[in-house]
């Protein structure tokens, strides 16, 4: 699950989350001036975007999107 944009209507399109995301998951939809989640499978649940979003409209869940083979 990772990143959830919980209140898209409040997004100002400031682009802060796009710069903050180390994994290049978030892009800016230039036309609508809104953040979009383009590559959710690469979200590493690091909370950077949530921490930095000035409008506080991002919620990151700890559930990972990709399967990782475990040792046991």
């Amino acid at each position: 699950m990772g990143i959830r944009l919980i209140q898209e209507e409040l997004c100002t399109g400031c682009g802060v989350c796009v710069i903050s995301c180390p994994m290049d998951v978030i892009k800016l939809d230039e036309e609508r001036r809104k953040a979009i989640v383009q590559y959710i499978r690469d979200c590493q649940c690091c909370y950077m975007c949530e921490r930095d979003c000035p409008e506080d409209i991002i919620y990151v869940t700890p559930d990972r999107e990709r399967r990782i083979p475990l040792a046991w």
């Binding site: 180390p22 994994m23 690469d42 590493q44 649940c45 690091c46 990972r64 990782i68 475990l70």
Partner: peptide
């Protein structure tokens, strides 16, 4: 190895 640990997946 892009394993199960926060923050080093890249």
């Amino acid at each position: 190895s892009k394993g199960s640990f926060v923050s080093h997946k890249n």
